[in-house]
Design a protein around this nucleic acid. Structure first.
Length: 168
DNA sequence: ACATTGATTACCT
DNA sequence: GGTAATCAATGTC
């Protein structure tokens, strides 16, 4: 995952004046912010700042634990679904692929991810204690345009050596 | 109204 | 190593 701040963050979508795309970033936390990159991939963020403060976390990758068959089906049905299917652990190993695997598009923006009855929600899985996970912090990916001061910040977090992480 | 660009990925040599 | 696909948003006229 990767952290993005408000107008002061030269790498953040919130650096621009509020638009229909990024307005939700300034709203209450726990909501979804989905944007389209390069005209093809829809990337999922979780709004994190308090209401009135723009901030969000981009879900860059995740490990498929259940519904692998559904993810493969979603991938095949996607307009940019690749011809060959990857191994299970690579079904969501990138921000664009997370969107493809879950069938998420920009219409999901604003959805409350903390609603226990929601179709897409954040849960705490007590069966796996991530407090002991070997987490590494690295610079964010693909934001060199923001300049060294921001591109150099280690705001990307990943489990070290995890097979589902998008890049080492 | 038109030109440029990106929080990416898959496929090619 | 390089490039095509494809569009919302920004910047320029």
């Amino acid at each position: 995952m990767e952290a993005y701040a408000g107008p002061e963050d030269a790498a953040s979508h919130a650096r621009f004046t509020s638009t229909r795309r990024n307005a939700v970033m300034s709203g209450p936390p726990g909501r979804a912010y989905v944007y389209r990159v390069y005209g093809m991939y829809d990337c999922l963020n979780v709004v994190t700042g308090p209401d009135g403060t723009a901030a969000a976390v981009l879900i860059r990758a995740l490990e498929p634990l259940e519904g692998v068959d559904l993810m493969r089906a979603a991938r095949l049905g996607h307009r940019h679904g690749p011809a060959v299917s990857p191994p299970d652990h690579r079904l969501a190993s990138g921000p664009g692929l997370v969107g493809v695997a879950f069938g998420i598009d920009t219409s999901w923006t604003g959805v409350d991810l903390c609603d226990p009855a929601g179709a897409l929600r954040l849960v705490r899985d007590a069966s796996e204690d991530l407090a002991d996970a070997d987490v590494v912090a690295t610079p964010r990916i693909g934001i060199a345009y923001a300049g060294p001061a921001w591109a150099g910040r280690p705001w990307r977090f990943a489990v070290r050596g995890h097979p589902s992480v998008s890049r080492p």
